[in-house]
Write a protein that binds this DNA or RNA. Structure first.
Length: 563
RNA sequence: CGGGACGUGGCGCAGCUCGGUAGCGCACCUGCUUUGGGAGCAGGGGGUCGGGAGUUCAAAUCUCCCCGUCCCGACCA
């Protein structure tokens, strides 16, 4: 491609509303343009990068036996109603009506659709199957932000596996896991696989692939010894045990005027780790109590997962009053029997604890949790803090910000049962297949690469996904020898199959160098009278910025070696 | 959804307090001079000032409503 014909409007200034590095650079470099919030146009350079990322994903999916198909992006409401996700998706799902008034959904994911296709499977002999598509997804995010990192319309690779049993699913899941590591490796992204919450996907295990980045919104707890990594929504740690004194024969109510916080009660002589923090939540309309130790934080996603509710929210002060007879600050679960009580295991067996008495300005002391509180479910609710001990080796866990770049799920038989994806097993018995689902956001992957591959001058693309692998900069367009030599080199690289861009614009050298760096072409060849007089060209890798003189006869093979 | 800010040519911004008919930088076009890290001079094109209503002789500027965008939080398959 000749740059003089290339449409890549570069900007000296980033748009004022861009914050994230990838957002600024992708817009400045002329890769993308916003249409409206969360929807972007891909210009030629961006489209080339996207195509290369897709190709890598296809190659790795095909390598593990994936078969590419494509399902519609608009789905009838009925299929989502059948799985229950027409409701549980809530506002995230775009819904449109057709001329007959029928409801339709724009796809946020496609478990339902693939399971429907899977209904045509009929025998265990056909399994395993692995199908995938690379297609547009729509998600009405509460707040699209940071350019391509969080959008409402995006390209996703979603794959689905079909196996006869759990062992088969494990094999498929592991194949995807390994393929993801290869894909991210080829994108030059260091993806950390972590244990994750499955959200409303259902199923059992899920693994997220997280890339460290300051702009990342997901927090991950990671062991320095490399034997544990988990999303904060799922992470656990080892706590030191607390030896309690015997305590009282029964809880004793005592006056605590104006004491409304854990901290205040601690100052009054009841240490935070000897208190029970009682929080009231509303899970799909049902009032539930969540109990954690006074010095612990509750993680709402853990609570949401434990309740299996679609929407979990903190109760208002008035709702707490209605449920327990007191306002936050004096709440407790002693004697409560009419509400669902969920407690963190760190409270199990604790004695001589202090907690609210459900009467403003009064607390209980001497509470024996097992004896005095009717806990319905013991579930992990506590949010792990940095510095706590790794469950595998005891080392202090670190906390890092990450971008979720991929997520794989073991779905189980739920979708297959609902959509009739059943086969006859060896015994001639009809059984639902076991499914897995596996997603990578293409656009987010692109943005993540930019987040982790840039400097003050612009993007530094890995060669595998760079819009062009090489740019030949003609330093002086008026120098006929330069133009001739550069053009010959250009044709030579083209016929060798190299993605090469010839900067033949009638612009000053500074402009050309700055643009080449901004759009991040990994290899730059400068052709100008100075070096050419000695039979040389200038070779500058984008990553280092160091320029080296190379004989013009050697540069082509040198480049091909580097690629 | 709660809090905050913003909306003026393709991009970045000023003008608004105190109403008088729109300006600067970049980019773009023409010419000349330049030419090894975002050139200089001269000339030029391009704007319903987010939209609507209102106040006024007069609205980018004041008032009201609406729309949109961004940031923080909530939320996030």
């Amino acid at each position: 491609m000749r740059w003089s014909s290339l449409f890549t409007p570069t900007l000296r200034d980033a748009p004022g509303d861009a914050e994230a590095t990838s957002h600024k650079l992708l817009v400045r470099g002329g890769f993308i343009r916003p249409l409206h919030a969360g929807h972007y146009t891909y210009l030629p350079l961006g489209h080339r990068v996207r195509a290369k990322v897709i190709k890598i994903i296809q190659e790795e999916m095909n390598a593990i036996g994936g078969q590419e198909i494509m399902v519609p992006t608009m789905h009838p409401a009925s299929i989502w109603q059948a799985s229950g996700r027409w409701d549980s998706m809530g506002d995230v799902m775009f819904r449109v009506q057709d001329r007959h008034g029928s409801d339709n959904a724009l796809g946020v994911t496609a478990e339902e659709i693939f399971a429907t296709v899977g209904a045509e499977l009929s025998s265990y002999k056909q399994l395993p199957q692995m199908w995938y598509q690379i297609n547009t997804k729509f998600r009405d995010e509460a707040r699209p932000k940071n350019g391509l990192l969080r959008v409402r319309e995006f390209t996703m690779k979603d794959a689905y596996s079909f196996d006869i049993d759990e062992a088969g699913l494990d094999t498929s899941f592991d194949a995807q896991h390994q393929a993801y590591l290869k894909i991210f490796g080829r994108l030059d992204l260091e993806a950390i696989p972590v244990e994750a919450s499955s959200g409303n996907m259902g199923g059992t295990d899920s693994v997220e692939f997280m890339v460290r980045a300051d702009t990342g919104e997901d927090e991950v707890l990671i062991c320095p010894n490399g034997d544990y990594a988990a999303n904060i929504e799922k992470a656990i740690s080892t706590l030191s045990t607390i030896e309690d004194e015997a305590g009282l024969a029964a809880p004793e109510k005592f006056a605590t005027p104006n004491i409304r916080t854990i901290e205040a009660l601690a100052k009054a002589g009841y240490a935070a780790d000897r208190q029970i923090k009682t929080m009231v939540f509303v899970a799909d309309g049902e009032t539930v109590l969540a109990l954690v130790r006074g010095d612990h934080q509750l993680n709402e996603q853990k609570l949401a997962d434990a309740t299996a509710a679609n929407v979990v929210r903190p109760a208002s002060s008035d709702e707490a009053l209605a449920a327990l007879g007191a306002r936050p600050g004096s709440l407790g679960a002693v004697g409560v029997t009419d509400l669902r009580i969920m407690a963190d295991p760190s409270l199990r067996g604790r004695r001589a604890m202090a907690t609210g008495a459900n009467e403003d300005d009064w607390h209980y002391r001497g509470v024996d949790v097992n004896r005095d509180i009717a806990v319905d479910e013991w579930v992990d609710l506590r949010e792990v803090q940095a510095g706590e001990a790794c469950v595998n080796c005891g080392a202090a866990l670190g906390m890092v910000n990450t971008i979720e770049s991929g997520h794989i799920f073991k779905l189980g038989r739920g979708y297959a049962e609902k959509f009739g994806a059943q086969v006859l097993d060896k015994n001639g018995k009809q059984v639902p297949v076991v499914m897995g689902s596996y997603g990578i956001g293409v656009d987010r992957a692109i943005a993540t690469v930019v987040e982790t591959h840039s400097d003050e001058n612009g993007i530094i693309w890995p060669a595998a996904i760079a819009p062009y692998e090489v740019v030949i900069t003609i330093v002086q367009m008026k120098d006929d020898d330069s133009v001739a030599a550069a053009t010959e080199l250009y044709n030579q690289l083209l016929s060798a199959g190299v993605d090469v861009l010839l900067d033949d614009r009638d612009a000053r050298p500074g402009v050309k160098f700055a643009d080449a760096e901004l759009i991040g072409i990994p290899h730059r060849i400068g052709v100008g009278p100075r070096a050419l007089a000695e039979g040389n060209v200038e070779y500058t890798p984008r990553a280092t910025g160091d320029t080296e003189l190379v004989a013009i006869g050697d540069i082509a093979s040198r480049i091909q070696q580097a690629l």
